[in-house]
């Protein structure tokens, strides 16, 4: 079972490279059980959305 520290690294790397199947599974299992990491993942998704819309309208 991966720790939050490991998972937050993978969540970020997942935005910049294709994670392996094992990595994806371990992240998904962790996220199912961990509200803190789910919030972190949501923050990272938010950042990407915000940057891709810059400079807004």
């Amino acid at each position: 079972m991966k720790t939050c520290k490991e998972v937050h690294h993978l969540v970020i790397e997942g935005q910049d490279r294709q994670l392996s199947l094992m990595e994806r599974i371990s992240v998904r299992v962790h996220l199912m059980m961990c509200g803190a990491c789910r919030r972190f993942e949501a923050q990272m998704d938010f950042l990407r959305q915000a940057l891709r819309r810059f400079p807004g309208d």
Binding site: C4, A36, C37, R39, Q43, F46, Q49, A50, R53
Partner: peptide, 17 residues
């Protein structure tokens, strides 16, 4: 390896965007 502090809920991004 646990978070010292739980990441904050940023809520629905649309509200900010």
């Amino acid at each position: 390896g646990h978070w010292q502090e739980k990441p904050a809920a940023w809520g629905n991004p649309e509200a900010s965007l």
